[in-house]
């Protein structure tokens, strides 16, 4: 490689450097167009997701975009809510309000404090008609004074997700769409697709009781990134990556519904 470089004249060398610079700038531009903005409104937030963050472009958890979460059962819906609450807790460390939009809400504000999210920072909108959820979501995502907007909904078309993504690109609000038992998992204009499933907690040998909440975090899709699987636990107010990865054995009731596999 080096010997090749020596043969090139300084003039061509400069053009190569120029070209690579142009390509880098173009790449950045494309990333911006795809919804990953470099100028994030929360530049100092560290999510502590460790190796998971390497899966994102630029090794940074993308804020100011829309994340899609999918859950098939009530147990994994609870895990997903917990995971989102953990992310929201980190996002609202410096203040700000979040909107939680749902049709039939079962979220219990007391349980959120454990994930570092002050429940009085949340504004719940319980939409009586399902078709109004998207309207409320879009209004919320357009409001730059909010930190994040969470929407619990079942179905969403590609066009509708594009509309939400466009709203977010201007306002830099982070959106989380939690889709419980969606009928189909088609492509959406969201930056990522997550799936959070619970996993048996780890306890020290011979200790009674329950361990820390622990999840299998699957990043099924990430634009310009590398999808993958990780294990995470919530300990002492932050995420902890569990390095020893093993396919969790899910006997009995849970195996039947792992449709994605």
């Amino acid at each position: 490689m080096i010997s090749v470089k020596y043969t090139i004249s300084t003039n061509t060398m400069e053009t190569i450097l120029e070209k690579s610079e142009i390509i880098r700038q173009l790449r950045e531009k494309i990333m911006g167009l795809e919804g990953f903005s470099k100028s994030s409104p929360h530049p100092f937030v560290s999510f502590g997701l460790g190796p998971l963050e390497a899966a994102f472009p630029g090794n940074v958890f993308p804020t100011g975009t829309i994340h899609e979460f999918i859950s098939q059962e009530s147990s994994s819906a609870a895990s997903t809510n917990g995971f989102i609450a953990g992310l929201l807790g980190l996002l609202t460390q410096r203040g700000g309000y979040c909107l939680w939009v749902s049709h039939r809400r079962s979220l219990f504000p007391h349980g959120l404090k454990y994930f570092g999210l002050a429940p009085d920072r949340l504004i719940f909108v319980d939409v009586p008609r399902k078709k109004d959820i998207l309207w409320v979501l879009e209004q919320g995502l357009k409001c730059p004074a909010l930190t994040a907007v969470v929407g619990e909904l079942q179905e969403l078309s590609f066009t509708e997700s594009q509309r939400l993504q466009l709203a977010v690109e201007r306002s830099k609000v982070t959106g989380f769409l939690h889709r419980c038992q969606p009928r189909q998992q088609h492509a959406l204009a969201c930056a990522t697709r997550w799936k959070i499933t619970p996993r048996q907690s780890e306890l020290e040998e011979g200790m009674p009781g329950l361990g820390h909440p622990s999840w299998r975090v699957e990043l099924l899709k990430v634009r310009n990134g590398r999808p993958g699987n990780w294990l995470f636990a919530w300990e002492n107010g932050r995420f902890r990556h569990l390095p020893s990865y093993q396919i969790p054995i899910r006997p009995g009731i849970s195996t039947g519904s792992q449709r994605y596999a």
């Binding site: 203040g95 309000y97 504004i123 909108v125 939409v127």
Partner: peptide
Amino acid sequence: QVSGRDHVVVGELLDRIAGKIGMQSIRCY
């Protein structure tokens, strides 16, 4: 910090939502 202006903007957003789907659907705890 969250500026006083943000409260006003959020308040205005909630007014819009309340105008469409009703004040009783917005809840804080």
